[in-house]
Design a protein around this nucleic acid. Structure first.
Lengths: 337, 337
DNA sequence: ACTTGGCACTCGGGAACACAGAGTGCCAAG
DNA sequence: CTTGGCACTCTGTGTTCCCGAGTGCCAAGT
């Protein structure tokens, strides 16, 4: 059904189109790639490819352009991820190694990725549900107000101000703090709710209301909001890529964290690259864009995801190489800090 | 030199051009604004205005467009800030009041501002140098590693991981923590360096190296990096405004925090609005854009700044009203939390 | 001294048009 | 199945042309 040569033709079309951004015709193909057949033969192949939906011609008598389906086949079977050179790796490593805290790691990562790929980079903070408690802190701010600070083993620091129902003496707070840390230290965040549930019974009854308030805020912090913390960079690259096609829609999507989360997707396998091409992705405003994403983590566990967003006609092998390389190094840095 | 009527003509030109985005001619002016004079007279006035550099015609036989100087005069003398209605204020208030911590306040503010003005909003976090210490926390992570957490009275939480020169027992850490808090609580961040300088002498000599390391990181945190923490939102509005003029440059500028900082500028007077028009602002890529900024703070002190960035041809009265209103309410919210 | 109507002039931008070039599909021969 | 030949079909580009908005200037009016 799909000849070996037809595949070669498809590959050539994708490569040419990506680099020139112009529909590619049979003659140009015969010239630039040594396929050893005549343009007429290529035309026949293209005809078949078009019938099966891999390519498409904008108008009669224009060259062909790959469809989403065509890119998909290219990514799955016709290309291989382009690995980074040693020099490039070192550059990444040294650039990321300079970061002193999680915020800076993430910030540098997203910029690096944007610069390497010349596209929009998206990085998710290490997911809370996949982290564990490293420390819980209670800081009295006023008589009836406490700041709750949660530090995870992935370096995230979450804070919330808690308004207490009534005044609580400082030493009660200190005691609760000690108990919390003793109980929760090292505890996976996912299992915090259960552990916390039976906590009030082990504390003086006088403090119950305050404790209940604090704990409820703690739980809220875990599940409700900060789960999805995402940053992006490199939007200027969008403007450079001449596709003004729905630039507005793309920018809007980027500012919606929920959409972003769904774009990055999920995989179980840590080392796997996810590629979503054009209409495959779950948001209509992004019909002309593709997403290349990967999970990253320290050791064997996926902590979160990062990726790149660009026009469907992007250089997949290079982009995939960059995303994979950066994901690996972030994992290493994270493990070491 | 500048007739009352000429000023009226200039005002009319600015208003018309802002709303139509097309060069405005003498006839249109005479029709739409009841200036009670004939087009010919207006032409004479426009001639003068052009000679003095307030307006400009793209080509012979096209209408006139305001120059930066023209907008400047308009902002300074020909317009008044449009106040918000009670309903709008309530909307702002309730929207901002729902925030639970500083991150969320800032996030909501920047989105609100972007939505109100339909432009790009920029918000700076409360400046560290203008805050005071509320609490310092030291969390042992490993034998020779400590996390330093600094909480300010403006709600900012800064964290840094510190690698110690040698192992320090937990109770030494606890002691240092206690001393630090006792010494620094309520201390203005600007004066922390002096206060800290004499601290090591008051601690056991055995801990000196570790203490020195921790303190140097603390000082570094204060001055070096996080001083300028800035977020922005609403870039999609840029794409909507048809000015594709240097959209790329604008996006690039937005991702440079240093540039952003300088854009927001500084004023001593809290309630003052700063307007930078086109070429007035300090970055060449933003020649076609204006910035409207204001300081915000709790009480009488300016904590940081926020503002809006849009095409030079923006509706200044409305934008200025929005920026001023949002700045005020953020100040209130901040004071109350 | 300023305002106003008249008038000739300029110029940008859109419509109409022609045309070259790239690319195709098909066919018949190798 | 491949290939060269050929007629055909488009798009994009360049050219020309013309309309209309807008101007500057001038002479007359107040």
């Amino acid at each position: 059904m799909l000849d070996e040569r037809k595949l070669a033709v498809l590959r050539a079309i994708v490569e040419d189109y990506v680099s020139t951004n112009e529909p590619v015709g049979s003659k140009a193909l015969a010239d630039r790639h040594n396929l050893k057949v005549s343009p007429a033969t290529i035309r026949n192949d293209m005809r078949d490819l078009e019938e099966q939906g891999y390519i498409h011609q904008p108008h009669t008598s224009a060259g062909r352009v790959p469809t989403d389906k065509g890119y998909r086949l290219f990514v799955d079977r016709l290309s291989q991820v382009k690995p980074f050179t040693a020099a490039e790796r070192r550059a990444i490593e040294t650039f990321l190694a300079g970061a002193v805290d999680l915020d800076e790691i993430v910030m540098r990562t997203v910029r690096l990725l944007a610069q390497l790929t010349r596209q929009v980079a998206v990085v998710q903070y290490p997911s809370l549900t996949k982290s564990a408690v490293r420390h819980v802190e209670l800081v009295p701010l006023a008589e009836r107000r406490v700041m709750l600070v949660l530090i995870t083993n992935t370096g995230r620091v979450e804070q919330r101000v808690v308004d207490l129902p009534d005044a609580v003496p400082d030493d009660s707070i200190a005691h609760l703090r000690a108990v919390l840390n003793a109980t929760l230290d090292g505890c996976a965040l996912a299992s915090v709710p259960e552990v916390v549930a039976e906590l009030p019974t082990r504390l003086p009854t006088a403090d119950r209301p305050a404790v209940a308030t604090i704990l409820s805020v703690l739980l809220e912090t875990l599940v409700e909001r900060h789960e999805e913390k995402i940053v992006f960079a490199g939007t200027a690259n969008l403007a450079a890529a001449d596709f003004s096609l729905g630039l507005r829609d793309v920018l809007e999507a980027l500012e919606e964290q929920v959409v972003l989360m769904r774009l990055l997707g999920e995989t179980d396998d840590l080392s796997e690259l996810t590629v979503r091409i054009g209409s495959e992705n779950p948001y209509s405003g992004l019909r002309g864009t593709s997403i290349v994403a990967a999970g990253y983590g320290s050791g064997d566990k996926e902590l979160a995801r990062l990726g790149v967003l660009g026009p469907t006609r992007m250089d997949y092998p290079v982009t995939m190489g960059a995303v994979r390389a950066v994901a690996r190094y972030v994992g290493q840095i994270l493990a070491g800090s």
